[in-house]
Design a binder for these strands. Structure first.
Lengths: 93, 93
DNA sequence: CTCATATTTCGGTATTTACCGAAATACCAA
DNA sequence: TTGGTATTTCGGTAAATACCGAAATATGAG
């Protein structure tokens, strides 16, 4: 879970997630909308993927990124837990 | 808002917030429950305070930390926005 | 003022993260 | 295979963050 919070801590990564909210997009499409060098962006993709916040599917030479909503929901639940508003589950590390 | 996500990215800081969920506590009380050196902990307090996730009140020699629920709720809203589940508000930086 | 307690700041090191140009890889088409 | 497009990995540097012992500060009691 710490991976997820780490991933959420960078504004570019939050923007990526937001762009993927409506539909899956290729790395190139995302690059068109974000305007930072591709290697930098690719690094952010890797962080999101390591946290399992996004998944990938290769279609020919392009790689499609899709939001993994269930993991995002877990993060949401963890925050609700911190706030004490709901769904507890005792032990977070 | 980025300050808030940065602050949430560290497990010790999330633990602090969780401990403050029920009631405000002094730095010393928190230190009793967390078991890392006090200077380290104090640094985490400073990050949380800079993000306005906690507020302080001095009572004699002790400093009382209290959770700032409204800011935590803002973070929650930002996450709901990423997930597209609710409360949008167009421009995040 | 002196002392004891609570907490933070200082100072230095270690670790991690971010950034991005250049080069490499993967895939498909011709 | 050759060439082109899409994307990532490499390699190095820069900057931010984390850690914590020692010292400093703040406060109230006596």
């Amino acid at each position: 879970m710490s991976d997820v919070f780490d991933a959420l801590a960078h504004p570019v990564r939050r923007k990526i997630l937001k762009l993927l909210r409506r539909r899956a997009m290729s790395a190139g499409e995302l690059a068109d909308k974000i305007d930072i060098p591709k290697p930098t962006l690719s690094g952010h993709f890797a962080v999101l993927k390591a946290a399992d916040l996004v998944g990938t599917e290769r279609q020919g030479t392009t790689i499609i990124y899709r939001l993994n909503m269930s993991v995002l929901e877990e993060a949401l639940a963890a925050m609700l837990d911190i706030a004490g508003l709901r769904g507890a589950k005792p032990g977070e590390k």
